[in-house]
């Protein structure tokens, strides 16, 4: 059974990597001065307060699956699904995996879209921009937060390994269709897939956790 958890944002917002948020989403450059950083710190607090006073929640869908492995593929025997993985720099997800695999999808749900559109429509461009970057990294923080819990549940002692679809070791986005099937997610869920297998709202991440 897929586990569904609802998590309050105050629990996982602390896991947002501020440096990464500032640099990759909020446009901070190495040559920007301290004043700029200070302004972004203020924006961080303001955006956090906005989110904590909203209806936004973190939603987690995850389950542990028993899998079998052969060469570069992983099979979910109960579901008749097989995934092939490419080998990059000598690394292959299938060969690194054990006989248990955790699949996880996290999202901030439809509520995040409403709030973003509201800000855009009000002409509140900068706050909309801050909100967008903040919530994008909130989804990542939520993935990290749940990974922490999953590791304790699995009893992982090995270094953490979490892979998302669309990156070099797991490039095939269409696997997300299987992923949603395995986690019993559908059109009515708080997160859904587009025709090109992207998650919607984009403040969502999916992952394969080896340990």
């Amino acid at each position: 059974m897929t586990q569904k958890k609802v998590i309050n944002p105050d629990k996982f917002i602390p896991f947002i990597n501020k440096q990464v948020l500032f640099k990759t989403s909020w446009g901070l450059k190495d040559n920007n001065n301290q004043d700029t950083i200070q302004e972004l710190e203020k924006a961080f607090i303001a955006t956090k307060e906005l989110i904590l006073s909203s209806y936004i929640k973190g939603l987690v869908y995850s389950n542990i699956f028993s899998v079998t492995k052969e060469n570069n593929s992983i099979t979910f025997p109960e579901h008749g699904i097989t995934w092939e993985f490419p080998t990059v720099d000598g690394k292959n997800i299938a060969s690194a995996a054990g006989n248990k695999l955790v699949l996880q999808v996290v999202t901030l749900g439809k509520e995040v879209l409403k709030l973003y559109e509201e800000l855009e429509n009000q002409g509140n461009y900068s706050n909309a921009f801050y909100f967008h970057g903040f919530t994008t990294w909130m989804a990542e923080a939520l993935a990290q937060y749940n990974h922490n819990t999953v590791r304790n549940e699995l009893g992982s002692r090995l270094p953490p390994e979490r892979y998302s679809f669309g990156y070099s070791l797991c490039p095939d986005m269409s696997m997300q269709k299987d992923l949603f099937k395995l986690l019993e997610l559908n059109e009515n869920s708080e997160v859904r897939l587009t025709e090109s297998f992207m998650m919607y709202p984009e403040q969502s991440t999916s992952a394969l956790i080896l340990h």
């Binding site: 446009g27 920007n32 302004e39 972004l40 002409g123 509140n124 461009y125 900068s126 921009f129």
Partner: peptide, 17 residues
């Protein structure tokens, strides 16, 4: 590189106003 994108957006808000 003197200012960053969100600051441009704030200027745009004043422009719009």
């Amino acid at each position: 590189g003197e200012i960053i994108l969100p600051f441009v957006l704030e200027s745009a808000e004043i422009m719009k106003k």
